[in-house]
Amino acid sequence: MNDKQYKTESIIHPKQTCTKKSIELYVFIDPLCKPCWDFSTLLKKFHLEYGQYFSSTYVPVNRYYTTKKLLEKRPSHLSFVWEKTASRSDILCDDHLWIDNKELYPYYSAIAIKAAELQGRIAGVNYLKKLQEYYFLLDYDITDKEVLIQCAREINIDINEFIEDLHSPLSIKAFQCDIKVTKEMNITEIPSVVFFNENIEEEGLKINGFESYQTYVKILELMHREKLIKRDLPDLLEFIKFQPFVTINELSTIYEKTNQQIELELKKLILLRKVKKIVQEENIYYQYFDSQSIV
Protein backbone atom coordinates (compact mmCIF):
# COMPACT_ATOMS: atom_id res chain seq x y z
CA MET A 1 0.00 0.00 0.00
CA ASN A 2 1.26 3.46 -0.86
CA ASP A 3 1.10 5.50 2.35
CA LYS A 4 1.26 8.82 0.49
CA GLN A 5 -2.00 7.97 -1.19
CA TYR A 6 -3.69 8.25 2.18
CA LYS A 7 -1.73 11.28 3.43
CA THR A 8 -0.27 9.25 6.31
CA GLU A 9 2.64 10.25 8.51
CA SER A 10 4.65 8.35 11.12
CA ILE A 11 4.02 9.48 14.71
CA ILE A 12 5.64 8.53 18.03
CA HIS A 13 3.22 7.18 20.67
CA PRO A 14 2.68 9.71 23.51
CA LYS A 15 2.79 6.85 26.07
CA GLN A 16 -0.08 8.33 28.04
CA THR A 17 -2.60 5.52 27.97
CA CYS A 18 -2.62 1.76 28.20
CA THR A 19 -4.01 0.19 25.05
CA LYS A 20 -6.59 -2.46 25.95
CA LYS A 21 -7.19 -3.59 22.37
CA SER A 22 -4.54 -4.31 19.76
CA ILE A 23 -5.04 -0.92 18.08
CA GLU A 24 -5.66 2.48 19.64
CA LEU A 25 -6.96 5.48 17.73
CA TYR A 26 -6.25 9.04 18.80
CA VAL A 27 -9.10 11.05 17.28
CA PHE A 28 -8.55 14.81 17.07
CA ILE A 29 -11.80 16.70 16.61
CA ASP A 30 -13.39 20.06 17.24
CA PRO A 31 -16.77 19.42 18.92
CA LEU A 32 -18.19 22.50 17.13
CA CYS A 33 -16.80 21.74 13.67
CA LYS A 34 -19.27 20.49 11.03
CA PRO A 35 -16.73 18.21 9.25
CA CYS A 36 -16.01 16.64 12.67
CA TRP A 37 -19.72 16.02 13.18
CA ASP A 38 -19.84 14.29 9.79
CA PHE A 39 -16.70 12.35 10.69
CA SER A 40 -18.26 11.15 13.95
CA THR A 41 -20.87 9.32 11.84
CA LEU A 42 -18.15 7.60 9.85
CA LEU A 43 -16.36 6.68 13.07
CA LYS A 44 -19.62 5.26 14.46
CA LYS A 45 -19.84 2.96 11.44
CA PHE A 46 -16.17 2.03 11.95
CA HIS A 47 -16.88 1.01 15.55
CA LEU A 48 -19.95 -1.00 14.56
CA GLU A 49 -18.11 -3.01 11.90
CA TYR A 50 -14.56 -3.25 13.28
CA GLY A 51 -14.74 -2.06 16.89
CA GLN A 52 -13.50 -5.40 18.17
CA TYR A 53 -10.02 -4.45 16.97
CA PHE A 54 -9.54 -0.97 18.38
CA SER A 55 -10.36 1.56 21.09
CA SER A 56 -10.58 5.32 20.65
CA THR A 57 -9.19 8.23 22.63
CA TYR A 58 -10.82 11.54 21.72
CA VAL A 59 -8.76 14.71 21.86
CA PRO A 60 -10.93 17.84 21.56
CA VAL A 61 -9.29 20.72 19.72
CA ASN A 62 -11.01 24.11 19.49
CA ARG A 63 -10.11 26.06 16.38
CA TYR A 64 -13.20 28.28 16.02
CA TYR A 65 -14.93 31.00 17.96
CA THR A 66 -18.49 29.70 17.98
CA THR A 67 -20.59 31.48 20.59
CA LYS A 68 -24.09 32.46 19.55
CA LYS A 69 -23.02 36.09 19.41
CA LEU A 70 -20.26 35.13 16.94
CA LEU A 71 -22.20 32.97 14.52
CA GLU A 72 -19.76 33.66 11.71
CA LYS A 73 -17.05 31.07 12.29
CA ARG A 74 -13.58 32.50 12.13
CA PRO A 75 -10.88 29.84 11.77
CA SER A 76 -7.68 30.42 13.69
CA HIS A 77 -4.30 28.91 12.96
CA LEU A 78 -3.96 25.93 15.28
CA SER A 79 -0.50 26.86 16.54
CA PHE A 80 -1.85 30.26 17.59
CA VAL A 81 -4.75 28.59 19.42
CA TRP A 82 -2.35 26.23 21.23
CA GLU A 83 -0.17 29.04 22.53
CA LYS A 84 -3.12 31.28 23.40
CA THR A 85 -4.95 28.51 25.23
CA ALA A 86 -1.88 27.22 27.03
CA SER A 87 -1.14 30.71 28.35
CA ARG A 88 -4.68 31.09 29.72
CA SER A 89 -5.67 27.62 30.86
CA ASP A 90 -3.95 28.04 34.23
CA ILE A 91 -6.51 30.72 35.16
CA LEU A 92 -9.60 28.95 33.84
CA CYS A 93 -10.31 27.65 37.33
CA ASP A 94 -11.37 31.15 38.35
CA ASP A 95 -15.17 30.91 38.62
CA HIS A 96 -15.64 34.57 37.67
CA LEU A 97 -14.01 34.08 34.28
CA TRP A 98 -16.77 31.70 33.25
CA ILE A 99 -19.16 34.65 33.03
CA ASP A 100 -16.88 37.62 32.48
CA ASN A 101 -14.31 36.54 29.91
CA LYS A 102 -16.06 36.09 26.56
CA GLU A 103 -12.82 35.16 24.80
CA LEU A 104 -12.52 31.97 26.83
CA TYR A 105 -15.94 30.62 25.85
CA PRO A 106 -14.75 28.45 22.92
CA TYR A 107 -12.65 26.35 25.31
CA TYR A 108 -15.38 25.50 27.82
CA SER A 109 -16.91 22.73 25.74
CA ALA A 110 -13.50 21.01 25.53
CA ILE A 111 -12.98 21.37 29.28
CA ALA A 112 -16.48 20.02 29.93
CA ILE A 113 -15.58 16.90 27.92
CA LYS A 114 -12.55 16.43 30.14
CA ALA A 115 -14.73 16.90 33.25
CA ALA A 116 -17.09 14.17 32.05
CA GLU A 117 -14.11 11.96 31.17
CA LEU A 118 -13.03 12.02 34.81
CA GLN A 119 -16.00 9.69 35.39
CA GLY A 120 -14.63 7.21 32.83
CA ARG A 121 -13.73 7.01 29.16
CA ILE A 122 -17.24 5.91 28.16
CA ALA A 123 -18.71 8.90 30.03
CA GLY A 124 -16.38 11.19 28.09
CA VAL A 125 -17.36 9.68 24.74
CA ASN A 126 -21.08 9.81 25.56
CA TYR A 127 -20.75 13.42 26.68
CA LEU A 128 -18.99 14.40 23.46
CA LYS A 129 -21.77 12.81 21.40
CA LYS A 130 -24.46 14.52 23.46
CA LEU A 131 -22.67 17.85 23.11
CA GLN A 132 -22.61 17.50 19.32
CA GLU A 133 -26.30 16.55 19.24
CA TYR A 134 -27.17 19.65 21.25
CA TYR A 135 -25.16 21.84 18.93
CA PHE A 136 -25.87 20.42 15.47
CA LEU A 137 -29.37 18.98 15.90
CA LEU A 138 -30.95 21.15 18.60
CA ASP A 139 -29.02 24.38 17.94
CA TYR A 140 -28.09 24.99 21.59
CA ASP A 141 -25.25 27.23 22.71
CA ILE A 142 -22.85 24.64 24.12
CA THR A 143 -20.55 27.29 25.53
CA ASP A 144 -23.27 28.06 28.07
CA LYS A 145 -22.63 26.54 31.51
CA GLU A 146 -26.24 25.46 32.07
CA VAL A 147 -26.36 23.71 28.69
CA LEU A 148 -23.13 21.88 29.51
CA ILE A 149 -24.66 20.71 32.79
CA GLN A 150 -27.86 19.61 31.03
CA CYS A 151 -25.78 17.48 28.63
CA ALA A 152 -24.22 15.76 31.63
CA ARG A 153 -27.63 15.20 33.17
CA GLU A 154 -28.91 13.49 30.01
CA ILE A 155 -26.10 10.93 29.91
CA ASN A 156 -26.75 10.02 33.55
CA ILE A 157 -23.39 10.82 35.07
CA ASP A 158 -22.95 12.25 38.57
CA ILE A 159 -24.09 15.88 38.19
CA ASN A 160 -22.58 17.20 41.42
CA GLU A 161 -19.25 15.65 40.57
CA PHE A 162 -19.42 17.02 37.02
CA ILE A 163 -20.17 20.58 38.20
CA GLU A 164 -17.29 20.40 40.65
CA ASP A 165 -14.96 19.06 37.96
CA LEU A 166 -15.87 21.84 35.50
CA HIS A 167 -13.48 24.08 37.44
CA SER A 168 -11.26 21.36 38.82
CA PRO A 169 -7.48 21.53 38.29
CA LEU A 170 -7.74 17.91 37.06
CA SER A 171 -9.97 18.93 34.13
CA ILE A 172 -7.71 21.86 33.30
CA LYS A 173 -4.67 19.57 33.50
CA ALA A 174 -6.32 17.07 31.14
CA PHE A 175 -7.17 19.90 28.75
CA GLN A 176 -3.57 21.15 28.83
CA CYS A 177 -2.41 17.59 28.18
CA ASP A 178 -4.62 17.45 25.07
CA ILE A 179 -3.06 20.68 23.82
CA LYS A 180 0.39 19.18 24.37
CA VAL A 181 -0.46 15.92 22.57
CA THR A 182 -2.02 17.83 19.67
CA LYS A 183 1.10 19.92 19.33
CA GLU A 184 3.52 16.97 19.70
CA MET A 185 1.71 15.00 17.00
CA ASN A 186 1.79 18.04 14.73
CA ILE A 187 -1.95 18.01 14.11
CA THR A 188 -2.65 20.67 11.48
CA GLU A 189 -6.01 19.48 10.13
CA ILE A 190 -9.24 18.68 11.93
CA PRO A 191 -10.43 15.93 12.06
CA SER A 192 -7.29 13.80 12.13
CA VAL A 193 -6.71 10.24 13.36
CA VAL A 194 -3.51 8.57 14.57
CA PHE A 195 -3.35 4.75 14.66
CA PHE A 196 -1.09 2.99 17.18
CA ASN A 197 -0.65 -0.74 17.69
CA GLU A 198 -0.10 -2.45 21.07
CA ASN A 199 3.68 -2.01 20.85
CA ILE A 200 4.09 1.61 21.94
CA GLU A 201 7.73 1.54 20.81
CA GLU A 202 6.56 1.37 17.19
CA GLU A 203 5.55 4.50 15.31
CA GLY A 204 1.90 5.17 14.61
CA LEU A 205 0.30 6.33 11.37
CA LYS A 206 -1.45 9.67 11.14
CA ILE A 207 -4.23 10.38 8.67
CA ASN A 208 -4.62 14.11 8.18
CA GLY A 209 -8.06 15.42 7.44
CA PHE A 210 -11.25 13.60 6.46
CA GLU A 211 -10.60 10.55 4.25
CA SER A 212 -12.86 7.88 2.78
CA TYR A 213 -14.18 5.10 5.00
CA GLN A 214 -12.14 2.44 3.21
CA THR A 215 -8.97 4.38 3.99
CA TYR A 216 -9.47 3.84 7.72
CA VAL A 217 -10.32 0.17 7.16
CA LYS A 218 -7.13 -0.36 5.13
CA ILE A 219 -4.97 1.41 7.71
CA LEU A 220 -6.52 -0.70 10.48
CA GLU A 221 -5.78 -3.86 8.51
CA LEU A 222 -2.21 -2.69 7.91
CA MET A 223 -1.67 -2.03 11.63
CA HIS A 224 -3.41 -5.25 12.71
CA ARG A 225 -1.34 -7.29 10.23
CA GLU A 226 -4.14 -9.82 9.75
CA LYS A 227 -7.27 -9.95 7.66
CA LEU A 228 -10.13 -8.16 9.39
CA ILE A 229 -13.49 -9.79 10.03
CA LYS A 230 -16.29 -7.33 9.32
CA ARG A 231 -19.26 -7.47 11.70
CA ASP A 232 -22.81 -7.15 10.40
CA LEU A 233 -24.56 -3.86 11.04
CA PRO A 234 -27.63 -4.00 13.29
CA ASP A 235 -31.06 -3.73 11.69
CA LEU A 236 -32.08 -0.14 11.03
CA LEU A 237 -34.71 -0.10 13.79
CA GLU A 238 -32.33 -1.70 16.27
CA PHE A 239 -29.74 0.98 15.53
CA ILE A 240 -32.25 3.82 15.92
CA LYS A 241 -33.50 2.33 19.19
CA PHE A 242 -30.19 2.98 20.90
CA GLN A 243 -29.58 6.46 19.45
CA PRO A 244 -31.04 9.68 20.91
CA PHE A 245 -31.51 11.13 17.42
CA VAL A 246 -30.66 10.08 13.88
CA THR A 247 -30.72 11.91 10.57
CA ILE A 248 -31.19 10.59 7.05
CA ASN A 249 -27.64 11.61 6.11
CA GLU A 250 -26.23 9.75 9.12
CA LEU A 251 -28.13 6.57 8.29
CA SER A 252 -27.16 6.84 4.61
CA THR A 253 -23.48 6.98 5.58
CA ILE A 254 -23.65 4.07 8.03
CA TYR A 255 -25.76 1.75 5.86
CA GLU A 256 -24.29 2.88 2.53
CA LYS A 257 -27.69 3.55 0.99
CA THR A 258 -29.11 6.55 -0.81
CA ASN A 259 -31.10 9.16 1.07
CA GLN A 260 -34.18 8.08 -0.88
CA GLN A 261 -33.78 4.45 0.20
CA ILE A 262 -33.34 5.42 3.85
CA GLU A 263 -36.28 7.81 3.71
CA LEU A 264 -38.51 5.05 2.34
CA GLU A 265 -37.50 2.67 5.14
CA LEU A 266 -38.13 5.39 7.73
CA LYS A 267 -41.59 6.07 6.32
CA LYS A 268 -42.45 2.40 6.74
CA LEU A 269 -41.23 2.45 10.35
CA ILE A 270 -43.26 5.60 11.01
CA LEU A 271 -46.41 3.93 9.66
CA LEU A 272 -45.71 0.99 11.95
CA ARG A 273 -45.35 3.46 14.85
CA LYS A 274 -41.81 2.29 15.48
CA VAL A 275 -40.14 5.62 14.69
CA LYS A 276 -41.24 9.23 14.93
CA LYS A 277 -40.18 12.19 12.82
CA ILE A 278 -39.22 15.40 14.60
CA VAL A 279 -38.98 18.76 12.81
CA GLN A 280 -37.23 21.59 14.62
CA GLU A 281 -36.80 24.75 12.58
CA GLU A 282 -34.68 23.68 9.60
CA ASN A 283 -33.57 20.39 11.16
CA ILE A 284 -35.30 17.04 10.63
CA TYR A 285 -34.35 14.03 12.68
CA TYR A 286 -35.83 10.72 13.74
CA GLN A 287 -36.26 8.99 17.07
CA TYR A 288 -37.30 5.58 18.30
CA PHE A 289 -40.99 5.52 19.17
CA ASP A 290 -41.41 4.00 22.63
CA SER A 291 -45.11 3.12 22.85
CA GLN A 292 -44.69 2.03 26.49
CA SER A 293 -43.86 5.62 27.46
CA ILE A 294 -47.33 6.78 26.34
CA VAL A 295 -49.79 7.00 29.19
Rank of each mutant, 00 (worst) to 15 (best):
I113S: 06
E103V: 04
I111Q: 03
L78H: 05
I278G: 09
K267F: 03
K20R: 12
E202T: 09
L233K: 09
L104N: 08
I262L: 07
L205C: 02
E198A: 13
Q119I: 01
T258A: 11
K274W: 02
K267H: 10
L251A: 12
E201Y: 07
E189H: 11
P14Q: 08
I159E: 14
K180S: 13
N160G: 15
L237F: 04
A115M: 06
K218N: 13
P14C: 09
E9D: 06
V59C: 11
S79V: 08
Y6P: 00
L236Q: 03
G124F: 02
K274F: 08
T85I: 01
I29Y: 01
Y140G: 01
E250R: 04
D38W: 01
L220Y: 00
L118R: 14
E189P: 00
I229N: 14
Q5C: 04
Q214D: 10
K44L: 09
T253G: 04
L205Q: 07
E189Y: 07
E265N: 10
I172P: 02
Q292P: 00
S10N: 13
C177L: 10
D94I: 07
L128Q: 05
I248T: 13
L97W: 01
S252L: 09
E198T: 05
Y53G: 14
E250L: 07
Q132G: 03
L272Y: 06
D100Y: 02
L272I: 00
F28M: 07
G204D: 01
Y127H: 04
F175S: 08
Q214H: 08
D235S: 15
K34G: 06
P106M: 04
T8P: 00
L269Y: 09
I11Q: 12
T66S: 15
S168F: 01
V194T: 05
L128G: 05
S87Y: 03
P244N: 14
N160Q: 12
H77F: 09
A115S: 15
K268A: 15
